[in-house]
């Protein structure tokens, strides 16, 4: 049975101690839609994605992914989506193929199908001829493409992308959106993504939700948001809705590690 709304979120809240990262949000994503989830830094985007993808347990509220409750039917929900995280999540010491194989086994794809799919997906992102190279020798763009191939290996119905184009050059960014749009059109995969590049959101998405201070402040098409704020670009609409102030972000241990990792990588280069 095909669900009309593939993602349903009701009164979702996440608190860390006294701090409310996500405050009673509700929204629905239609099957087959490209849904942009925008917001300033620290607005609650990543926390929301972590809850949608079962990495964090909500403090209260309900999430249904492909009809499965994300807390009580965790594994069914997990099988329904693929994800590209904001930070790299590949094993650098493994080859591209080994990273794919690891994913395929965890998602219990039978061996023959697995081989075929890995080849198909690596060809899709144009990495098939580098399949036996260690990932640590890949460029940022190649790693991202590999993560996309990996996230799609098990044929997910929903594809989450948390700032998939961060830090990539315009060529690679275009390339990546081409893959994603193709996937959406040909396979009907629902796309849920976050980005800070407003022109990307404007160009690619069917619908946009803006989150700020843990609340969804508005939702609509890019045109609707521009009309509503009497602006001509999505960037202006975004600023008019969320204000000009630069956000202070609470830095968690994980973020600190990420920063250190980035510095470490830069030093290596």
């Amino acid at each position: 049975m095909e669900e009309k709304f593939i993602i349903q979120v009701e009164n979702l809240t996440k608190k860390f101690g006294d701090f409310t990262a996500v405050n009673d949000i509700s929204f629905k994503v239609k099957t087959g839609e490209i849904f942009a989830f925008l917001g300033p830094n620290g607005a609650g985007k990543t926390t929301t994605i972590k809850m949608l993808t079962t990495l964090l347990t909500p403090t209260s509220g309900n999430i249904h992914i492909n009809g499965f409750n994300s807390v009580t039917k965790q594994d069914d929900a997990r099988r329904s989506f693929g994800i590209v995280f904001q930070d790299p999540s590949l094993d650098d010491e493994l080859t591209a193929y080994e990273n794919m194989e690891y994913h395929g086994v965890l998602y219990k794809i039978p061996k023959d199908t697995r081989k075929k799919r890995i080849e198909e997906m690596l060809k899709f992102v144009e990495l098939w001829n580098r399949k036996n190279e260690l990932v640590k020798n890949f460029s940022g763009g190649m790693k991202r493409r590999l993560e996309i191939a990996r996230g799609l290996l098990h044929h997910p119905k929903i594809f989450f992308l948390d700032e998939p184009t961060l830090g990539l050059d315009p060529q690679t960014r275009n390339h990546i959106w081409e893959y994603i749009q193709k996937l959406n059109k040909e396979e009907g995969t629902t796309i849920f993504f976050t980005t800070h590049y407003m022109e990307e959101a404007d160009k690619v998405s069917n619908i946009i939700a803006i989150i700020d201070g843990g609340k969804i402040i508005t939702q609509g098409t890019a045109e609707e948001l521009k009309v509503k704020t009497k602006t001509t670009s999505l960037e202006d609409a975004f600023i008019s809705l969320t204000g000009k102030q630069i956000r202070e972000e609470e830095v968690s241990g994980a973020d600190r590690m990420r920063m250190r990792r980035r510095m470490f990588n830069r030093m290596r280069r």
């Binding site: 997990r78 995280f85 590949l90 965890l106 219990k108 990420r258």
Partner: peptide, 15 residues
């Protein structure tokens, strides 16, 4: 694994 992000890949898998 956590620092290099790989743990997340393992934890979102249906295992």
């Amino acid at each position: 694994d956590r620092q290099f992000g790989f743990l997340k890949e393992t934890l979102v898998a249906p295992v």
